[in-house]
Write a protein that binds this DNA or RNA. Structure first.
Length: 330
DNA sequence: CTTATTTGACCTTT
DNA sequence: AAAGGTCAAATAAG
């Protein structure tokens, strides 16, 4: 995906290239992100919801790939699994029965026959930058990858048969990449589940802040906002081994938590993002000052200008890179 | 006690 | 056979 500066500049009917246009374009870009991350909640492009343009949607790395679709795997309890499991008697017999029970069961295990599903790949430093709750069901060391891949499915997969899944894998440490670790997040299938009202709110859920404090010099903290859309149990700060599991909030630093709660700064109103309430003076000033020589800035970034934190949204790499948060000096 | 995560075995595809 | 996706008991955490 490439969102060139030229693409940013016009062609979307947002008026002359001034602050208003930039703001409009920003909303558009965030709407794109929203559409990408909240496909079941955002209006379809044809529906006249978020202000997508055809060229813009083509820029996003939304791929239609064949991928397995989960089918119920019901063979009852079979054998001990996981750590410290105790093998039950006759696992082979039981397995044979299970295996040969039906074609459906066969297809229910392992890699299934490919069916048309939508997969969306993003690279982000904040893998949980979405409004859904996920349950981890597996982790796998991937050949030729430095870090394991974690597998998640929607927590509504059971009660609402939501097919949405995602995998999160930390990218290999690249040379000279001293920034926050990036994670490749692959969203598989779209949510069919119904979100709660709170969960649907497209607020910034989590970011990481690099702090320099006497107690913890130059250490990164990952924390979430207090959005109710965000559960703690299934969310995932990065752990040292490169996986993404568990959830913690920076309780050790209440100020960070407070400052991070920028959810009230913006909201989505129909087809556009809006400031809620009206943009503060620093925000308005920043909007005026912004140009697109650097990364395209999202409202998240603007929120940072309000003295809270910084969250850059890069939409000029393929797949697009959601790069959050480098805030120093707390 | 309940819920979420971990993790090795199992299964299918390539 | 290798690789990767899934299962589910064991375990940890709240």
């Amino acid at each position: 995906m490439q969102l060139s500066r030229g693409a940013v500049g016009g062609g979307h009917g947002c008026g002359p290239p001034d602050g208003t246009q930039l703001r409009c374009r920003e909303r558009e870009l965030v709407a794109q992100l929203h559409e990408l991350l909240f496909p079941s909640t955002a209006p379809s492009p044809a529906g006249g919801g978020a202000s997508w343009s055809s060229s813009s949607s083509a820029d996003l790395s939304v791929e239609h790939c064949g991928s397995p679709v989960k089918a119920p795997a019901l063979c009852g309890r079979r054998r001990g699994r996981g750590s410290k499991r105790v093998r039950e008697g006759g696992p082979q017999e039981e397995q044979k029965q299970c295996r040969g029970s039906s074609a459906a069961t066969k297809a229910a295990r392992g890699r299934r026959k490919k069916e048309e599903t939508t997969t969306t790949t993003i690279v982000t430093t904040v893998p949980d930058f979405d409004g859904y709750q996920w349950k981890k069901y597996g982790q796998k060391k991937i050949e030729a990858a430095q870090y394991p891949r974690s597998y998640y499915r929607c927590t509504n997969s059971a009660d609402q048969a939501c097919p949405a899944k995602r995998t999160v894998q930390r990218n290999d440490d690249s040379e000279g990449d001293s920034g926050s670790p990036k994670y490749t997040v692959v969203y598989i299938s779209e949510h069919s589940c119904k979100l709660t009202e709170a969960a649907a709110a497209p607020v910034i859920l989590e970011t990481a802040v690099r702090t320099k404090t006497p107690a913890a010099p130059d250490t990164a903290a990952v924390f979430s906002t207090n959005s109710s859309a965000y559960s703690t149990g299934t969310q995932s700060p990065a752990s040292s081994d490169g996986t993404w599991s568990g959830g913690t909030v920076s309780e050790a630093n209440p100020m960070l938590r407070e400052r991070n709660d920028c959810s009230s700064l913006f909201d989505v109103d129909g087809d556009c993002w809006k400031w809620d309430p009206s943009p503060t003076a620093p925000v308005a000033a920043l909007l005026q000052d912004m140009d697109f020589a650097g990364p395209i800035m999202s409202p998240v970034h603007v929120a940072a200008a309000d003295g809270s934190w910084i969250n850059d949204l890069f939409l000029n790499e393929s797949p697009f890179v959601l790069n959050s948060c480098q805030l120093f000096g707390y």
